[in-house]
């Protein structure tokens, strides 16, 4: 398990919250590192998680931004690229959405060795794959939520996971649309996981609702003023 240096950010942090987000980035990176270790144990293979990029992004552009990170030379038509999305609701003091999206073949490669080891009967193979993917999302989300809870003192937990394979735009649209009812921008985090020779590029979107985002930023502010950086 290793944490690599992140790529340079292509999106400017909203200046007002730049320091809060920088601090959040530090903790969320640590949370992802921890999640990566647990994922390595879960799938029984070395998983490398890249340090995430974290930005605020205008809500109407979230899908473009997320897909632009997921694939090189992204075009709008990437919205219909087929992806597997692992979704968990964010519950507690911060409500919102967690979405991990990856190529369907990569998704299966990540968990299939584990499922094969279990020796399940073919008729429930697909179901177990879905369930293992849900658990993969759960481990990743818990790692990040715990990091966010540690830094802010807020209670944050995941809902049960849902796993869908569909057009990327259609998957991303659902959480994005919930936020668009209340807000103009959203936190957006993306990272990449690599397992052995398989580079499973995944898009990770963590999208808190505005009240929760404000609560989170408010909780971080005293730490910055107090010099805990």
């Amino acid at each position: 398990m290793a944490l690599e240096e992140p790529g340079e950010s292509r999106f400017l942090l909203t200046k007002k919250h730049a320091r809060e987000l920088e601090l959040a980035h530090k903790y969320i990176s640590a949370g992802l590192l921890k999640a990566g270790k647990q994922l390595s144990q879960f799938v029984g293979r070395e998983i490398v998680v890249q340090a995430p990029r974290l930005d605020l992004c205008p809500i109407d552009q979230l899908i473009e931004v997320a897909l632009g990170s997921a694939v090189e030379d992204a075009q709008y038509s990437e919205s219909e690229r087929v992806q597997t999305g692992i979704y968990l609701g964010m519950e507690g003091d911060i409500e919102g959405h967690f979405l991990l999206m990856l190529d369907p073949a990569d998704a299966i490669s990540l968990v299939e060795p584990l499922v094969n080891e279990l020796g399940v009967s073919p008729d429930i193979h697909e179901e177990i794959i879905q369930s293992a993917l849900g658990e993969l999302g759960n481990i990743t989300a818990s790692g990040i939520f715990n990091a966010m809870a540690d830094i802010s003192g807020l209670r944050i937990g995941p809902s049960c996971p849902a796993v869908v394979t569909d057009m990327a735009g259609a998957i991303l649209e659902t959480p994005m649309l919930d936020i668009a009812q209340f807000a103009e921008e959203s936190i957006y985090i993306d990272t990449r996981m690599e397992m052995d020779k398989l580079a499973a590029r995944c898009t990770l979107a963590i999208i808190p609702r505005p009240e929760g985002l404000q609560r989170f930023i408010n909780a971080l502010t005293p730490r910055i003023v107090g010099g805990h950086r």
Binding site: I63, Y76, S77, E78, S79, E80, D166, M167, A168, G169, A170, I171, L172, E173, T174, L177
Partner: peptide, 9 residues
């Protein structure tokens, strides 16, 4: 003209 990947939209 094309609207790609419509979900709830």
């Amino acid at each position: 003209l094309a609207a790609y990947g419509l979900g709830s939209c």
